[in-house]
Amino acid sequence: MTDPHLEDPEYDRHGGFPNFQPATPGPGFGRFLSAMRRAQDLAVSADPDSETWDRAADLVEELVGLLGPTEAAEGVGPANRVPSLPGAGSLLMPPYHVTKFDSDGVELTVQFSRYHVGGNYAVHGGVLPLMFDSTFGMVIHATGRPISRTGFLHVDYRKITPIDVPLTVRGWVREAEGRKAFVNAELRDADENLLAEANGLMIRLLPGQP
């Protein structure tokens, strides 16, 4: 990864983005994420009796009461700042791990679960643009381009995306032109079958742009 300041001396003034640094919240945060991911799966698949739902609601409300007073600003809490954890510690993202991160692009492994199902045990079509958009951001960072936002994102669905199996996401800059970076990404299974592919435009922010 090259230093984006070399291309854009105004890099730090763009958009007011927090200067994200890796977080070390301790092992309890990893345990919390694992339990929450399982809770998400169960929230869309469990079918207990009314008494159990009431008890579950009590426990969740207790958790909200425990964590509520500690709510922090963006870039302060550990979510999305722990690279060693699935999804970098963000419950918003499917649990991915980065396996390649350099000027040629990025590669991730990801495994979707019951929480991501849209129907018939296939990953919801709306989840894949989220994964691709995040991949585009990683590509911009890995290739040393300045802070950018998505101009457009187009997804083609080639095959059903399954849950509970490891998949691979790859992303790279296809072409760069001034403030514009045209980015491609693809999702493949273990047999290299193309499940979905995306192309998009990432536009470098001007000073002060949010």
Rank of each mutant, 00 (worst) to 15 (best):
K159Y: 04
F32K: 07
R170P: 03
K180M: 03
P95V: 05
S34T: 15
G151I: 11
Y96Q: 08
R114M: 09
A198W: 09
T24K: 09
T143W: 00
Y157G: 08
P95T: 11
G75L: 10
M131D: 00
R81L: 07
D104F: 09
G119A: 15
A73L: 01
P22V: 01
E71A: 15
P25Q: 06
T70S: 08
V165K: 09
G119F: 15
L108I: 08
L59M: 12
V110I: 14
F17A: 11
R37F: 08
P95Q: 06
D54E: 14
A56H: 08
T168F: 04
T70K: 13
N193S: 12
V165W: 06
T150A: 06
G144W: 14
A196I: 06
P166E: 07
G171H: 02
F29N: 03
P162D: 07
R55L: 12
S90I: 11
M202G: 02
L195Y: 13
R204G: 01
N120C: 11
G178I: 05
A39Q: 07
E197N: 11
H116V: 06
S34D: 15
R170A: 11
G151N: 09
P94E: 10
P9L: 12
D41K: 04
G208H: 04
M131S: 13
E192S: 13
L85D: 01
V82D: 03
E177N: 10
E177R: 12
A88Y: 14
H154S: 13
P95L: 10
